[in-house]
Simulated scan of single mutants.
Amino acid sequence: MLAMAAAATCAQAAAAAPAPEPLPVVVLDEARAGHFAGLALSCVGREYPNKISHRLEGAKDVAAPSKLYPAFYGCYDWHSSVHGHWLLARLVERFPQAPFAAPARAALARNLTSENIAGELAYLRRSSDETFERPYGLAWLLQLGSQLRGWDDPQARQWAAALEPLEREAAARLLRWLPKLTRPIRVGEHSQTAFAFGLALDWTRRSGDQALRDALVARSRFFYQGDRDCPLAYEPSGQDFLSPCLAEADLMRRVLAPDEYARWLREFLPQVPRRARADWLVPALVLDPEDGKLAHLDGLNLSRAWMLEGIAAGLPPRDRRIRALRAAAAVHRELGLIAVGDSHYAGAHWLGSFATYLMAPPDAAPAPAPAAATGAGRSD
Results as ranks from 00 to 15, higher is better:
residue 357 Y to A: 05
residue 268 F to R: 12
residue 299 G to K: 05
residue 306 W to K: 00
residue 294 L to N: 12
residue 323 R to I: 09
residue 330 A to Q: 11
residue 344 H to R: 10
residue 309 E to S: 13
residue 303 S to N: 15
residue 297 L to F: 10
residue 319 D to F: 12
residue 305 A to S: 15
residue 325 L to S: 10
residue 352 G to V: 09
residue 340 V to I: 08
residue 298 D to C: 07
residue 318 R to K: 10
residue 354 F to I: 01
residue 325 L to D: 11
residue 337 L to Q: 08
residue 294 L to G: 10
residue 300 L to W: 10
residue 292 G to C: 05
residue 336 G to M: 06
residue 337 L to P: 12
residue 313 A to V: 05
residue 292 G to R: 13
residue 314 G to R: 02
residue 265 L to T: 11
residue 346 A to Q: 14
residue 325 L to Y: 13
residue 310 G to P: 12
residue 315 L to T: 10
residue 268 F to K: 07
residue 291 D to F: 11
residue 299 G to F: 07
residue 343 S to Y: 09
residue 307 M to S: 15
residue 273 P to W: 02
residue 286 V to K: 07
residue 316 P to E: 12
residue 293 K to M: 11
residue 321 R to T: 09
residue 272 V to Y: 01
residue 312 A to Y: 05
residue 298 D to H: 13
residue 313 A to K: 04
residue 271 Q to E: 15
residue 341 G to L: 02
residue 319 D to R: 09
residue 330 A to N: 05
residue 276 A to T: 08
residue 276 A to D: 15
residue 284 A to V: 02
residue 335 L to N: 07
residue 311 I to V: 15
residue 331 V to A: 08
residue 308 L to R: 05
residue 272 V to L: 04
residue 336 G to D: 07
residue 323 R to L: 14
residue 353 S to I: 02
residue 281 L to A: 01
residue 326 R to E: 15
residue 354 F to C: 03
residue 314 G to W: 01
residue 347 G to A: 13
residue 348 A to M: 07
residue 316 P to I: 13
residue 265 L to I: 09
residue 324 A to R: 11
residue 285 L to V: 13
residue 359 M to T: 14
residue 272 V to A: 00
residue 324 A to K: 09
residue 311 I to H: 02
residue 306 W to M: 05
residue 342 D to K: 02
residue 339 A to E: 03
residue 286 V to F: 12
